[in-house]
């Protein structure tokens, strides 16, 4: 059986600087898979390429049998791919409910808007309480819930989550991850990018570790938890700097 999302030999960067240099990974239907790696290794860039914000220079992404890279972002969204971006990026002067409505802007999702809105409010009662408030006035945790809810409003098959724990207090991280678990239980496939390895491996069944623009390690969650390479990947930068000094 082939995977829902299949990334092969992906290259991308910004101007002269190459960030992704032959990335390969896949995400199966209903799976939660995490993508781990040190600061600046290219996780957000990967999410950008998948969602269409960053162009790929080489490689392929197959999504449900189609060539994803050939589609503009809005068509990717209407075909069921949604990104909750790093730093949440809510629309600060719009109300919570307006943000959620925007999540179902695309025509396919608009038909399910009211049902989805009920689901999101059931998942995050906090958002229901704050429906009419400007989202920019909410706490980081609430904004993260809004970003998740907004992505869910597009009625996605694949949810791309870029560092949902970023800047949140440990207790808030726990409740955000509880929500991610609940979303995963509805058979939505999730690609989860995280710095918080521990939290990520608690919801993901498998994971990949990135270094220098490639996958350097893949395995199931239990294996990755014990893997020394995971620690190395995170301190990889410090090591290479150390080497440079000795050379």
């Amino acid at each position: 059986m082939s995977a829902l999302l299949e990334v092969s030999n992906l290259h991308a960067g910004y101007g002269e600087s190459a960030v992704l240099q032959g990335l390969d990974f896949e995400l199966g239907q209903g799976e939660v898979v995490c993508l781990l790696g040190a600061n600046g290794v290219g996780k957000t860039t990967t999410m950008g390429v998948l969602s269409g914000l960053v162009p790929a220079s080489e490689g392929r992404v197959r999504y449900d049998g189609i060539d994803l890279l050939a589609l503009p972002t809005h068509e990717r969204v209407s075909s069921g791919l949604a990104l909750s971006p790093e730093g949440r990026k809510v629309f600060p002067n719009l109300t919570v409910e307006e943000n959620l409505y925007l999540g179902s802007f695309n025509r396919n999702a608009r038909a399910h808007r009211m049902r989805k809105l009920d689901e999101v409010y059931a998942l995050f009662p906090r958002l229901a309480e704050r429906r009419t408030q400007s989202s920019g006035l909410m706490s980081g945790g609430e904004q993260q819930m809004l970003a998740l809810g907004r992505a869910l409003m597009s009625n996605p098959r694949v949810l791309l989550l870029d560092e949902p724990s970023l800047g949140l207090a440990p207790l808030v991280v726990q409740s955000v991850f509880a929500a991610i678990r609940a979303i995963a239980a509805t058979n939505i496939s999730i690609l989860l990018v995280e710095q918080n390895t521990h939290a990520a491996l608690s919801v993901a069944s498998r994971g990949y570790v990135m270094a220098a623009g490639r996958i350097v390690l893949a395995g199931d969650a239990a294996t990755l938890r014990e893997a020394p390479e995971l620690r190395d990947a995170f301190i990889g930068k410090a090591q290479s700097k150390g080497k440079a000094l000795h050379a």
């Binding site: 969602s51 269409g52 914000l53 503009p72 972002t73 809005h74 969204v77 209407s78 949604a82 990104l83 971006p85 990026k89 809510v90 629309f91 600060p92 002067n93 719009l94 307006e98 409505y101 925007l102 999540g103 802007f105 695309n106 999702a109 608009r110 907004r150 597009s154």
Partner: peptide
């Protein structure tokens, strides 16, 4: 719908793109 999308686009370009706004 389009008015809301217009405000979203004026506020947060990338996020508006992610909403599937053309």
């Amino acid at each position: 719908e389009f008015g809301r999308a217009t405000r979203a686009l004026a506020e947060q370009h990338d996020a508006a793109v992610l909403m599937g706004i053309n």
